[in-house]
Design a protein around this nucleic acid. Structure first.
Lengths: 197, 197, 197, 197
DNA sequence: AATGAATGAGGCTTCATTCAT
DNA sequence: TATGAATGAAGCCTCATTCAT
C-alpha cells in the first residue's frame, strides 16, 4: 500500500470520519470503517490521531470552521434585519445544497460531544454564536440596537436553522425542505419586523 | 433473581433503555447496560425483544405516544393561534420540566432511526405531525384557514420546538433555556400575527 | 465448539495460564495463547475472568496453595532441625520432580506480581512464610528456640530453595540439579548444626 | 533532535533498556519506552540493534560484565574461605547498595534469556561461574582443595546470592535485607567451616 | 417461560518493525 | 548515517446474540 504523507492522511481521515459519521452515526463510526473509507491502514489512523476521540475532536474543529465560513460568506453587510436574514439563508442553503455529510455529521456529533469529558460540543455552538454575534453587531453599528437584542437575534437564527435541519435530515426530502426553508425565513422576517420596529 | 412476567419486563426494559440512551447516547446504550438498569438478566432482554433493534423500536413507539400525549394535554381548545401557541408552550415545557431523559432520548433516537432500514424515525415525526394537524384543524374549524396553512403552522411549531431542544440539550442551562422558551413563543406569535391576519 | 461449564473452564484456564507462563514467560502469556491452550474461545477467558490480570491473580492463588501443600506434606513432625530439613527437601523435590510448569510459573510470576498495584506477589511469599513458620514453631515447641530464630530458619530455607530454583530453571539439567539439591541440604544442615547447638 | 553517533547511542540504549526492564519488567520493556528513556528516536533503536532481541542480548552482555567486575573487585586475595566470603559479600552489597536497576534487570532477564533460541541466559551464569571458579582456584592454590570442591563452593555462593536477591527484590525492604545479608553470610561460613575442615 | 452460561465477531489500541529520505 | 513516517500483526476487551436447561 502506497505511503502517503501524514498531513494528507490526517485530512483524508477527517473527511472519511465525517462521511462515516454521516452515514452510520457516531455509533457506527468505527475506526476500521473510517480507515477503510480513507483508504488507510488501521494503524495509520492511530499514528495520525493516537485516539479515536482525538480524531473526532479534529472533526469537530473542521465542522466548526466550516460553519464559521458559512456565516462569514453569507454576511451581506446590510442592516441588522437583512444581515440576520442573509445568515439564516446561508445556513439553510448550506444544509440543503452543501455537502449533506457535513450537516448530518454536525448534528450527530453535537450530542456525542456533549457527553465527552470536556464538552467540545459546546465549543461548536459557542464559536458559531460568537461569529454570528460579531456579524450582527457590526451590522447594527449604525442603528440603535441593544446588545441583548443582538444576542436574541443570534439565538433565534440558530434555533430556526437547527429546527430546519432536524426535519430535513429526518425526511431527506429536498423539494419539501426547500419550501420549508422559505417558511423558516418568513418566520424570522415576521419576528424581526415585530421586534426591530 | 425473582422471575418477573414478561409484560412487566418489557416495560422495565423500555424505561431502562430510555434512561440509558439519554445518559449514554445510542452509541453507549449496550444491551448489558440496559438490562442492568432494568434489573433484568441480560438474556431476558432478548427473550422479551429478540433484538436490540426491536427494543429500540419499542422505545420509539413509547416516545411517540408520550409526544402525542403532550400535544393533546396542551390543546387549549381556542382559536388557531391560541392553540398553536399552547401546543408549542406544552412542548417547550415538556423539554424543560418533564423527564429530561425522554427529551434527550428522543433527539438521540431520531437520527438513529433515520438510519434504520424501514425508517421508524419518520413515524415519530409523522405521527406527531398528524396529531398536531388534527388539533389545529379542529381549532380552525370556525375560521377560514387553508389546509396548507394548517400544515405550515404545524411545521413551524415543530421546527421551533426542535430548535429549542437542540440548544437546551447542548447547554443544559435551565434558567437560560427558560428565557429562550419565551423568545421562541414570541417568534411564533409574531409569525402567526403576520400570517393569520 | 462444545459448551463447557464455567467452573471447569476456570480450572482449565488457570492450568493453561500456568503452562503458557511457564513456557513463554509472563511476557508471552497472551490471552489468545492461554485460551487456545485451554481449548476455549477467547471470549470465554473474559467471561470467566473478566480481565487478564484477574486470571493471573487466580493463578497466583493456585500457586500459593500448591506451595503451601508442599510445605505441609513435607512436615516430618520431628525436631526443628529435622523439620526444616524435611521442608527444604520437599521444596527441592517439588521443583525437581513435580510439575516443572508450576515451579517456573511461580518464579515468573513473582516479579510480575511485584509490579502490580496491590502486590499480590508479596502474598505468595508471606503466605508461604507463615505456613513455614507455623510448621517450624510447632516443631520447636518442646525445645528452647527463640521466635527470631524460627523466622531466620524460615528465611534461610526459603532463600536456599529460591537459589536452587533459579539455577535449576536456568540450566534445566536434572542430574546436575539433583546433586546440587544434596549440596543445598548440606548447607542447611551445617548452618543449623552451628546455630542450634 | 541532535544527531548522535551510533556508538554513544548504543550505550544510551543499553542503559535505557536496563532501566526500563528494571522498572517495567521484560514484559513492559517496549521499544518505544526504551527509545524514549534513551532520548533517542524509535528508528534509531533499530538502526543500532536491528532487533529488540539483539538489544536485549547486548544488555545481557553488559550485565555479565558488571557481574564479573563485582566478583573481581571483591577478590580479597585470602584463603578459599575468606575469598568465597568476600565474593558473596560483594554480590550481596551489589544488590543492596549498587544500582538496584542492574540487579532487578538481571533477575528479569535470566528467565527471558532462558526462553530464547540460543539460551544467552546460560552465558551469564556460565561466565559468572567461570570467573568465580578462577578466583577461588587461585585462592586455593596454596591449600589442598579438590577441584570439585571449588565448583561446589562457587555454586553455593551463587545460590545464596540468588536466593537473597529474589527475596530482596520482592519485598524491597532495605533494612530487613541488610540483616538477611548477614544471615546469608553466616550460612556460607557455617558450611565452609564444616566442609573445609 | 425465563435465565445463567457461553461465544463469534468485532471494538480500540499498541507492538516491533520497515520504508523513504 | 540517521530518523520521521508509516504499517501488518497482534494485543486486550466488549458487543449482541444464542445455547441449554
Amino acid at each position: 500500500m502506497a505511503r502517503v504523507p501524514a498531513a494528507e492522511r490526517r485530512n483524508d481521515l477527517v473527511n472519511a470520519a465525517i462521511h462515516v459519521i454521516a452515514s452510520h452515526g457516531v455509533e457506527g463510526a468505527t475506526t476500521r470503517r473510517i480507515a477503510e473509507e480513507a483508504n488507510a491502514p488501521l494503524a495509520t489512523l492511530h499514528y495520525c490521531f493516537h485516539t479515536k476521540e482525538l480524531l473526532f475532536e479534529a472533526v469537530i474543529e473542521r465542522l466548526t470552521e466550516q460553519y464559521r465560513e458559512v456565516l462569514i460568506e453569507n454576511d451581506v453587510h446590510g442592516d441588522v434585519a437583512a444581515t440576520a436574514r442573509g445568515v439564516l439563508r446561508g445556513l439553510l442553503n448550506w444544509y440543503l445544497e452543501g455537502d449533506p455529510d457535513l450537516a448530518s455529521a454536525t448534528i450527530e456529533l453535537v450530542s456525542w460531544a456533549q457527553r465527552q469529558k470536556d464538552h467540545p460540543a459546546v465549543s461548536v455552538y459557542s464559536e458559531a454564536f460568537n461569529v454570528m454575534r460579531s456579524i450582527l453587531a457590526r451590522a447594527a453599528s449604525g442603528q440603535e440596537v441593544a446588545p441583548e437584542t443582538i444576542d436574541q437575534i443570534g439565538y433565534v437564527v440558530g434555533a430556526l436553522s437547527d429546527g430546519f435541519a432536524v426535519n430535513w435530515l429526518t425526511y431527506a426530502d429536498r423539494s419539501q425542505a426547500a419550501e420549508q426553508a422559505e417558511t423558516i425565513v418568513g418566520v424570522l422576517d415576521a419576528w424581526l419586523a415585530a421586534n426591530l420596529a
